[in-house]
């Protein structure tokens, strides 16, 4: 155990060193991610100055909805950069190095690389949005609600981690899943910034049962905000940590299955 911790700290130290080798550059890159993502929010802000609300959600409630999305992604990417970039890892042959070492593959993938720019950009934006909205949307930050919030964040991280892990596993079979990721993850994430009640039924079903972003932000926000557009059973509001755990376990089993089919790429 002790040497596992030591190894983790070694990996973290070297990745942080590599990412922050050029300090000004690191700050600017994090800022660039922050601003890129913030632009989308600003557009909504201006829209809501005209329309007042979207399906009953005012600007602060919308910002709170967004904050969950960014915060979970920011935390997730600290751990799952290696899975996000898994296609490259396989193609460049670095994955062979992991295989040749006597440590768990997932352990190595998770700790060998962290995209700190994305983490700071997304996470920073998430925290900013949270601070802007958290005390203006009428949430009573009791211990229960705070605990609920923490479990929800953890669940949201696991849900997105599971998606990345599944896509990474598909990489083993197809060697290239970037467009699938673009289609499934990034496009659906654009929808996820809005309350799913504004979309038609097909998209809602997709966002609950296929690419369950609804559990990352919509249902948790409903628990805390109790908006009138909620047309699903109340039970959905409590499922985020369970959905996250189950999805992650399933993705992990799929990974264990897929890894047996891994073939080193030629050179």
């Amino acid at each position: 155990m002790k040497d596992v911790l030591h190894l983790m700290s070694m990996y973290t130290k070297t990745t942080a060193k590599a990412w922050f080798q050029y300090r000004v550059d690191a700050v600017l890159k994090s800022l660039a991610v922050f601003l890129r993502e913030a632009t989308g929010i600003i557009v909504i802000w201006f829209t809501l100055m005209k329309f007042d609300n979207i399906n009953g959600w005012n600007i602060y409630e919308m910002v709170f909805l967004f904050s969950l999305l960014f915060l979970t992604y920011g935390i997730m990417i600290i751990f799952f950069t290696g899975l996000r970039d898994f296609g490259n890892t396989v193609r460049s042959g670095s994955f062979d190095r992991f295989i040749l070492r006597p440590r768990g593959l997932l352990f190595q993938i998770i700790f060998v690389n962290s995209d700190w720019f994305a983490a700071l950009g997304h996470g920073g934006l998430g925290i900013t949005l949270f601070l802007i909205s958290a005390w203006k949307v009428g949430i009573n930050w009791s211990l229960t609600n705070a605990l609920y919030y923490i479990f929800t964040i953890a669940g949201g991280v696991l849900i997105q981690g599971a998606v990345f892990l599944t896509l990474a596993t598909l990489n083993i079979f197809m060697l290239q899943t970037n467009s699938l990721k673009e289609l499934l993850y990034w496009n659906m994430r654009k929808f996820a910034g809005y309350p799913i009640s504004i979309f038609n039924k097909a998209i809602q079903i997709f966002m609950i049962y296929v690419m369950p972003f609804a559990f990352v932000n919509y249902f948790p926000a409903q628990f805390l905000l109790r908006k009138s557009d909620m047309s699903y059973s109340e039970i959905y509001m409590y499922l985020t940590p369970i959905v996250g755990t189950v999805m992650y376990l399933a993705a992990y089993l799929f990974w264990r299955f897929g890894i047996r089919f891994y073939k080193s790429s030629g050179n």
Partner: peptide, 8 residues
């Protein structure tokens, strides 16, 4: 293996 260096 040349394509898979041991050192990052």
């Amino acid at each position: 293996i040349a394509g898979t260096p041991l050192l990052c």
